[in-house]
Write a protein that binds this DNA or RNA. Structure first.
Lengths: 97, 97
DNA sequence: TTGATAGGTAAGTCGCGACTTGCCTATGGT
DNA sequence: ACCATAGGCAAGTCGCGACTTACCTATCAA
């Protein structure tokens, strides 16, 4: 639902996770934790990131696939198009005036 | 800032306000209150809507102009383009596959 | 000037979401 | 079998944001 997408994007940490996944798809939970620590200086617990990933996944922005004891996460930008086009006026010209 | 835009879009009531403004620009506070009541069944106080409009305005999504004792609100969809293009992959094809 | 309309300001309540702590499950290596 | 890795589950804390109540300001009409 669109509601979930907006709520998922409302948190800065979740947007940083999307920033990481758009750079490299198929990261595990621990990889994301490490990269948020190093690149963004976020000192969050593993469970916090896990909960954020659950929110992103229920919003359809992230899909996960399990292989053995590892779980890889992939970005899906399709739900973003809904929210980008929601308030576009019919008479609106192209974005570069 | 992008942060303010995401936070502004996180609330369902604020998104309904944007829905109203995209239909008809230049509405006053009382007009927006009335239309949220009738069309969406939202029974919110005037101050609640006023605070929502303040959030939308500080996010740059709404601009207001005062004339006499009336204050008209206009939609500005430009900040939305920032958030729409943030996670677009360079290799992403067109949106209609 | 009085009253009605349109809106602003400020303090307070309250629920939800972000984060933590602690413990449990499962897979892989040796 | 054992231990380490990768992750899940559940309860609890806590702050922020949404909303209300109450009062104040400003413009227009009679």
């Amino acid at each position: 639902m669109a509601e979930d997408v907006f709520k998922a994007l409302a948190d800065p940490t979740r947007r940083h996770i999307l920033d990481e996944l758009v750079e490299r798809d198929g990261q595990t939970l621990f990889e994301i934790c490490a990269r948020l620590m190093n690149k963004h200086g976020l000192g969050l617990s593993r469970q916090a990131i896990s909960q954020h990933l659950a929110v992103l996944e229920s919003a359809g922005l992230v899909h996960s696939r399990r292989e053995g004891r590892c779980k890889f996460h992939d970005l899906d930008t399709e739900p973003l198009e809904l929210i980008a086009t929601r308030w576009l006026r019919p008479d609106a010209p192209e974005s570069t005036p």
